[in-house]
Design a protein around this nucleic acid. Structure first.
Length: 270
DNA sequence: CAATGATCCTGTCCGC
DNA sequence: TGCGGACAGGATCATT
């Protein structure tokens, strides 16, 4: 399930692989995967990609025609750069297809079909990014901000950190890992988190994300880079889908907000 | 306003 | 062996 490090890894791959390419056409192969904004021009394509951007878990490609492509991989979405063939690309879960110049294709493969691609005028971009909190790796995500945000919330800290409006880009895997390193129970009430624990959460959020970025993300299910290689951070997970934490204590599984969480009752007591 | 639950989907895994 | 059901879960929408 792509979170910030996986989305950034995919974006880096696109930036490397498509820097000089032009997008000729975009085809939707599954109803609803591609949405064309009503204000988008039919002159939006063909276009070269002017720049690549990530915001939370969204991938954005800014086109030279004053339009932008917004891509969300959701659970199982995958972008693959492929050599084009004589015939149209075939894949059991191919949901969209970018036809490029220089004999390349960009394929959007997504078994569970939750992923979305939007083409819109760049000026209308904000309509498709929902409301997003600060980027966790910037100075905007800091101790005073998080303290302010948690002060009046009754929901568990894990649910708060999964809220994209509080901080953009975290998902289930990284929140489990962050809370383990910070020594905070996932079911602790947000407003009851101590200042010391808030400092630990902020520190370890940045630490875990930087490590995951250095390792090209986590390939726990079917996440792959655009060249189909795996990330490596799954080797560094300490509690997610583990039986025991690194200190040998048994891991507890709990369900919160419809998701399975993993924590160590011995190491996480705050 | 905050919090929770249902919904969208299909591949995989488990128990009988 | 095969089948039904649970599960995976990000974001959105409806409900409490």
């Amino acid at each position: 399930m792509p979170e910030l490090p996986e989305v950034q890894t995919v974006l880096n791959g696109l930036e490397d692989g498509l820097a000089t390419n032009k997008i000729i056409e975009l085809y939707c192969l599954y109803p609803g995967t591609v949405k064309i904004d009503t204000e988008a021009s039919n002159q939006a394509l063909p276009a070269k990609i002017r720049s690549f951007e990530r915001r939370g878990k969204y991938l954005i490609m800014h086109l030279e025609t004053a339009h932008s492509l917004v891509i969300h991989l959701r659970m199982t979405g995958k972008l693959v750069i492929a050599e084009s063939t004589q015939s149209d690309p075939v894949h059991p879960h191919l949901r969209a297809w970018f036809r490029l110049d220089q004999n390349k294709d960009l394929l959007f493969i997504d078994p569970r079909t939750f992923g979305k691609i939007v083409l819109c005028r760049t000026e209308n971009l904000a309509n498709y990014l929902a409301k997003l909190g600060p980027e966790p790796l910037t100075e905007d995500f800091n101790v005073s901000y998080l303290r302010q945000q948690l002060k009046n919330r009754k929901k568990p800290i894990k649910n708060a950190l999964l809220d994209q409006a509080l901080v953009a880009g975290l998902g289930n895997i990284y929140v489990c890992e962050i809370l383990y390193r910070a020594g905070v129970r996932p079911d602790a009430e947000s407003s009851q988190i101590t200042l010391k624990a808030i400092k630990a959460i902020v520190f370890h959020t940045k630490e875990v994300l930087r490590e995951a970025l250095e390792n090209n993300g986590t390939s726990i299910s079917d996440f792959r880079r655009v060249d189909d290689k795996s990330g490596e951070f799954q080797n560094l997970l300490r509690v997610y889908q583990k039986q025991q934490c690194p200190l040998g204590h048994d891991i507890t599984v709990i369900r919160q907000a419809g998701r399975s969480g993993f924590y160590c009752p011995h190491c996480q007591k705050k």
